[in-house]
Amino acid sequence: MSNFFSDYSAYVLCFLLLTVGLYGMLLKRNYVKKVIGMTIFQAAIILFFIQTAYKADGTVPVKDAALPVDQTDAYINPLPHALMLTAIVVGVATVGVALSLLIRVHGAYGSLDEDDIQKEAAK
């Protein structure tokens, strides 16, 4: 157990970030802060994927004349990076849709705070 945090420090930090994002999304009362929480949450997942690709002493996955191609341990895994390129695009689209919905909410209620909006809606 004593080595857990030093061995997996990157993953531990990643899940801390994940918790921060989740906290923001679920418990913040302001909608923009919820969106900020969402971007932190998605960034944490992206970092998590990138970490799974890491190999000690691995180099960039571009064919190197000095290294034989079949020596796969010499290259880091390129697949998670490619996947995260897609996930980043999805994340940007989600933030875009969220903000455009918020513009309409702000136009109708004049606020982006959950308490204010509930007061407004109860009227």
Partner: peptide, 27 residues
């Protein structure tokens, strides 16, 4: 209506959590 936009936004937050959890599982 604006009410639809509001509830759709709330759905967006919770739906993103769902999809992201799935993504972590895939990772």
């Amino acid at each position: 209506s604006a009410k639809a936009a509001l509830s759709s936004f709330r759905y967006l937050i919770i739906g993103t959590i769902g999809a992201s959890f799935y993504l972590i599982g895939i990772g």
